[in-house]
Simulated scan of single mutants.
Amino acid sequence: MGDPVSPLSTPIRLFVCGDVMPGRGVDQILPFRCAPQLHEPYVRDAGRYVDLAEKANGAIRRPAGFDYIWGDALAVLNQNAPDARIINLETSITESNAHWPDKGIHYRMHPGNVACLSAAGIDCCVLANNHVMDWGYAGLAETLNTLEKVHIRTVGAGANLKQAQAPAILDVTSRGRIIVFAYGAVSSGIPEEWSARSGLAGVNLLADLSRRTVDQIAARVRQVKCPGDVVVFSIHWGRNWGYQISQECIDFAHMLIDFAGVDLLHGHSSHHPIGLEVYKRKLILYGCGDFLNDYEGIRGHENYRGDLTLMYFIDIDPGTGMLVELKMVPMQIKQFRLNRVQQPDAAWLQRALQDHSCKFNSRIECTPGQTLRTVLQEKNWQAYVC
């Protein structure tokens, strides 16, 4: 194997993570608050999620500053200085009261709290997920308008099908561009009615995971990709809990790399990190896990340790689209804030990732410094976490 880095290329560094959910309970501790009324079977007031978190881990100051929720992650972001920061924003940003009927969970954040995204320097929000339209078409429209006003790019949802399918294009100085495509799958809980159409707002919903769909995606990539561009395919798919990755998903991810010009697959929907793969020297993150949520104190699924999250820093060679280095930094959600983990928790996360990435020949080991890194060897990649 030769060096995957082009002789004259400087790698592009991306930050990605899983689901960022600053709505519902988290919204209630921020400077602006939506009305707390919910339409869930068991919880009718968003403040109840704050009560559960405080009972589990202690009092949360209110109102919290816009940077509060990022906690220790802010210093890590600044230290690693990514060229672009991409998140899956799994909430509506709206004061709309028109909740989507027959849906059990409804996430929303007050538009005044959008400053919490700016506080972390977020460049692009993926919206192709199962909560962006929790508060109807009015909620989606306000979400898009609010993010546009603070100059945060959106992808995966729009006022019509053309806008929902359009990629987000992020310039990275003179080194090229990052082109983000975003799709959602019904397997993640996205209602089929949310699918955008020519004259109807909605999300960019995948028809299926077939080769025909890959060819359609490839045609869209060819329309915009130029030499030096890095193409990110962000997808909301699969179940919330469990490590199983279907062969259909694996085949789809491989086809995107083989035939559609995709350089990085950014998967999310799982509430905990699942396996990763380096396929033909391109990174596939099958499920990044939740990054921030209001689940503290909620019982059930403790075995998956959904409180443990990962920051993914990915260096990609713009000349080849190949992975140069992957570094992951473990965090823990506590008091609706991201905190650096202790060694026992990092070791637990390492074992879980190792167990479920080994099928892809990904080796994960603990090293000093509480980071995860990859190094290329002759026969495989190794991923390190501590």
Rank of each mutant, 00 (worst) to 15 (best):
I245W: 05
V180F: 12
D215I: 10
Y286D: 04
I250Q: 11
S269I: 10
D208A: 10
D229A: 09
S198N: 15
C226H: 13
A168W: 08
D215T: 13
G228D: 00
S198W: 13
K225G: 04
Q163N: 10
W241L: 07
A219K: 15
Q247S: 13
Y183K: 11
H236Q: 07
A260D: 07
S234F: 03
E193Q: 09
Y286F: 15
L205Q: 01
F233E: 02
S270N: 15
I217S: 06
F252A: 04
D229S: 07
F233Y: 13
L209D: 03
Y279N: 08
L283R: 01
A207F: 14
D290H: 08
K162V: 13
S174W: 13
E248F: 10
W194Y: 04
M255D: 13
I178V: 15
C249G: 02
A253I: 02
H236I: 10
V203H: 07
I190T: 00
H272T: 01
S234N: 01
I284E: 06
R220P: 02
G242K: 07
D251K: 14
H266T: 00
Y183P: 01
S174T: 14
P191L: 08
H271E: 09
A207W: 12
K282Y: 06
D208L: 10
R211W: 12
C226T: 14
H254V: 01
D258V: 06
R197Q: 13
R177P: 00
L264D: 01
P273I: 10
S246L: 09
W241R: 04
S269K: 13
E192D: 09
V231K: 06
K162Q: 14
G289Y: 05
S198V: 12
A164K: 09
F259G: 07
F233T: 05
K225N: 00
D251P: 00
I284P: 06
R211T: 13
E193D: 08
I235H: 07
Y286K: 09
R222C: 03
Q247H: 14
E248A: 15
F259N: 10
A260F: 07
